[in-house]
């Protein structure tokens, strides 16, 4: 079963890129959303993310992830609306709540940024094995192995935790807890007690991993070792130029 942050095996051009290129691409896609305040540009970045997912053979997963985030974004959008009171009023609700044009536009920008910035990380992790990320962090970015290990282990644990949470919810549903309710607030309330088993199982799992690493001589490493070599190709250069262009356009304000 694949979580939305887990690696999907494949041989697409995206899979074959240098891991560093994929990391830079992911960062550039995220950065462009925050550098630009233009709704259309951010929508284009979301579209670009979907196209990249499609080229890597993961469009179904990308769409289902996006749809699940859209539900959450809708809640964020509504909450955000109520907090912004400055600007041109367009609608007044009971209890004196006023919706403003600026509030709507800012809330929209907020959720579009949220959607657009979550996808590149998922894209990068779905086309790059965690081991490759770790190797690149150590070899190319000179990150100490200990820290690279922490980062990659955290990335590896996210899908495991998500799977664990699904298992816990399944176990609770089987004993009558109504996770199959359509009431979002009720669902959130029911989720709170489940943090306990998730925390317990996570701590147990992490402790086991730490002991296992320790027993295999993790602390005895004195020099780097690794057999994998990555080479930059024409595709990497093209992608890096495109990323630079995207960041430049977003930052320049050509598209305000």
């Amino acid at each position: 079963m694949n979580g939305f942050l887990s690696y999907v095996n494949g041989s697409s051009p995206l899979h074959k890129l240098h891991p560093l290129t994929k990391m830079v691409m992911s960062f550039a896609l995220c950065a462009s959303c925050f550098l630009s305040g233009n709704h259309v540009l951010i929508l284009c970045v979301i579209g670009l993310n979907l196209c990249l997912f499609a080229s890597a053979g993961g469009i179904a997963r990308a769409v289902s992830t996006l749809l699940s985030f859209v539900k959450f974004s809708a809640v964020l959008f509504v909450l955000q609306l109520f907090f912004i009171k400055d600007g041109t009023p367009i609608f007044t609700l009971p209890l004196g709540i006023t919706l403003t044009y600026e509030g709507v536009m800012f809330s929209l920008l907020f959720v579009l940024r949220f959607l657009a910035s979550t996808m590149p990380l998922a894209l990068m992790l779905s086309v790059t094995p965690v081991g490759d990320i770790s190797n690149v962090l150590v070899r190319n970015l000179r990150v100490p192995y200990r820290y690279a290990f922490v980062i990659t282990t955290a990335a590896r644990f996210i899908p495991l935790f998500s799977e664990e949470m699904s298992g816990i919810m399944e176990a609770q549903t089987a004993r009558g807890v109504e996770f199959d309710t359509r009431n979002f607030i009720k669902k959130i309330r029911l989720l709170i007690p489940l943090c306990v088993p998730l925390l317990i199982s996570s701590v147990r799992r992490i402790e086991n991993s730490a002991i296992s690493a320790e027993l295999r001589g993790f602390n005895l490493r004195t020099r780097l070792s690794g057999y994998k070599r990555y080479s930059f190709g024409a595709n990497d250069a093209t992608i890096l130029i495109a990323c630079a262009a995207l960041v430049a356009v977003s930052a320049s304000g050509i598209w305000p």
Binding site: G167, E170, A174, R175, D180, T181, V196
Partner: peptide, 24 residues
């Protein structure tokens, strides 16, 4: 039928008890 409704008259014991236990 909702799973939570079926759970009113069925009991399901999972392999891993830690997925079920959530109280102190």
């Amino acid at each position: 039928t909702k799973t939570s409704a079926i759970a009113r008259f069925t009991g399901f014991l999972f392999q891993n008890p830690d997925r079920q236990i959530c109280q102190n």
